[in-house]
Amino acid sequence: MEVILAEKYGFCFGVKRAIKITEKIAQTNPNTLTLGPLIHNPLEISRLEKNFGVKVQENINNLGQSKSVIIRTHGITKQNLETLKQKGVSITDATCPFVTKPQKIVEEMSNNGYDIIIFGDENHPEVRSVMSYSIKTPIVIANIESLKEIGKIPKKIAIVSQTTKQIEKFAEIVQYLVTNSLEVRVFNTICNATFENQEATRNLSQKADIMVIVGGKSSANTKQLFYIAQTHCPDSYLVENENDIQPSWFESKNICGISAGASTPNWVIKNVEEKIKNLKYP
């Protein structure tokens, strides 16, 4: 069986930047916390805790004795940022610049009287952080169907997207808004790394007869890669590490494609690749 890695996969710029920042801070601040998981990959979060003592705290009111708090790549709400500042802790912002961008856009457009529409998952920390920069409660839509269900479309709209969404679905939503609203300001906030990883996964899954997507199962961008792979290659699987691999998946397969989410470290991808290449059959 031939094993092929996608042309683009794994760590994106924002994740690399956040990990580098965190490791540097933790070397001089032994009680460093991240407010929420730094990235959506439990294996990398465990490595940071084991090697650098970085712990995760979900509740902003339970920071304990920590004097150093790192803001996760997905960002935090504007209100939580103000709360952190009032606590007098040392704040290091590891928010991905591709997430900071829609935060600023939403704040500016909202101040200028636009209703905000966000294409994304309302429960995702990135989307919650972006939502908090709007004066009025934004409209969050998961797909075009949920957009059609909201009823009357506001007359003056600014739309942004969660950074990990598919560009084709974003374009479909934009087209509907342009047809049904008087003024639409469109901001494509899907990051380049997401687009490149998705395109590479799409291309590889069209020629593979089995696809393995590596990443955290709570990672939005990893799940998007899995959905794309599954569309073109029904025998697609999402794994967090090599221990999830089942040999029976690969029987009678000729080409195995591997891709990985933007928060998946290279060492995890390598372990999965080696496990697949060394599979033994009776």
Results as ranks from 00 to 15, higher is better:
Lys280Val: 13
Gln166Ser: 13
Thr189Phe: 01
Asn254Trp: 14
Lys270Ile: 02
Asn29Trp: 04
Ile105Glu: 01
Gly36Ala: 01
Ile258Ala: 11
Cys12Ile: 00
Glu44Ser: 07
Tyr281Val: 09
Phe187Trp: 02
Val272Arg: 03
Met109Gly: 03
Asn61Gln: 13
Ser66Ala: 00
Pro42Lys: 01
Ala200Ile: 02
Ile157Lys: 06
Glu273Arg: 09
Glu122Ala: 14
Pro282His: 08
Thr34Cys: 10
Lys78Gly: 01
Thr95Cys: 06
Gln27Asn: 15
Ile116Arg: 08
Ile45Gly: 02
Thr100Pro: 03
Arg17Pro: 05
Leu35Ile: 06
Phe226Met: 13
Ser146Val: 07
Glu2Cys: 08
Asn180Val: 07
Thr231Lys: 13
Met211Lys: 04
Tyr176Trp: 13
Val54Phe: 00
Thr222Leu: 08
Gly10Cys: 08
Cys233Ile: 13
Val174Ser: 03
Asp121Gly: 14
Val214Lys: 02
Arg128Gly: 14
Lys275Trp: 10
Cys12Gly: 10
Arg128Ser: 10
Ala6Ser: 12
His124Thr: 06
Ile150Phe: 04
Gly10His: 00
Ile228Asp: 08
Val130Ala: 02
Arg202Pro: 06
Arg128Phe: 08
Thr222Met: 03
Asn31Ala: 07
Val56Arg: 01
Ala200Leu: 02
Val174Lys: 08
Ile255Asp: 11
Val178Asn: 03
Thr264Gly: 11
Ser161Leu: 09
Val214Met: 07
Lys207Gly: 11
Thr179Cys: 12
Ile144Thr: 10
Gly53Met: 00
Ala200Glu: 00
Gln86Trp: 11
Thr100Tyr: 07
Ser129Ile: 02
Lys50Glu: 06
Met211Pro: 07
Thr222Asp: 03
Lys8Arg: 07
Leu43Arg: 04
Gly151Leu: 03
Ile70Ser: 12
Val69Gln: 01
Thr32Ala: 13
Ile105Thr: 01
Val212Pro: 12
Val3Gln: 03
Ser218Lys: 12
Glu58His: 05
Gly113Pro: 10
Ile258Gly: 01
Ile276Lys: 01
Gln230Ala: 15
Phe52Pro: 04
Ser146Tyr: 05
Arg202Thr: 13
Lys165His: 07
Met211Phe: 04
Pro42Asp: 04
Val69Pro: 03
Ser68Thr: 15
His74Lys: 01
Phe195Gln: 04
Gly113Lys: 05
Glu242Pro: 04
Lys136Tyr: 12
Thr163Lys: 05
Val56Asp: 01
Lys207Trp: 13
Glu49Ile: 04
Val15Leu: 04
Glu7Arg: 14
Thr83Gly: 03
Glu273Thr: 12
Ala193Lys: 08
Ile190Phe: 04
Lys165Arg: 10
Phe52Trp: 00
Thr32Ile: 10
Asn188Gly: 10
Val272Gln: 05
Thr164Trp: 00
Glu242Ser: 12
Ile135Met: 15
Gly261Phe: 09
His40Pro: 11
Gly216Leu: 07
Asn123Leu: 14
Tyr9Val: 11
Gln230Trp: 15
Ser236Phe: 07
Ile159Leu: 03
Val69Gly: 02
Phe13Asn: 09
Ser110Phe: 08
Lys16Val: 15
Ile60Leu: 13
Cys96Asp: 05
Ala262Gly: 00
Gln198Glu: 00
Glu58Leu: 15
Ala6Phe: 00
Lys275Phe: 03
Leu48Ser: 02
Gln175Ser: 14
Val268Trp: 05
Met131Gln: 08
Gly151Pro: 04
Ser161Asn: 00
Ser46Thr: 05
Gln206Ala: 13
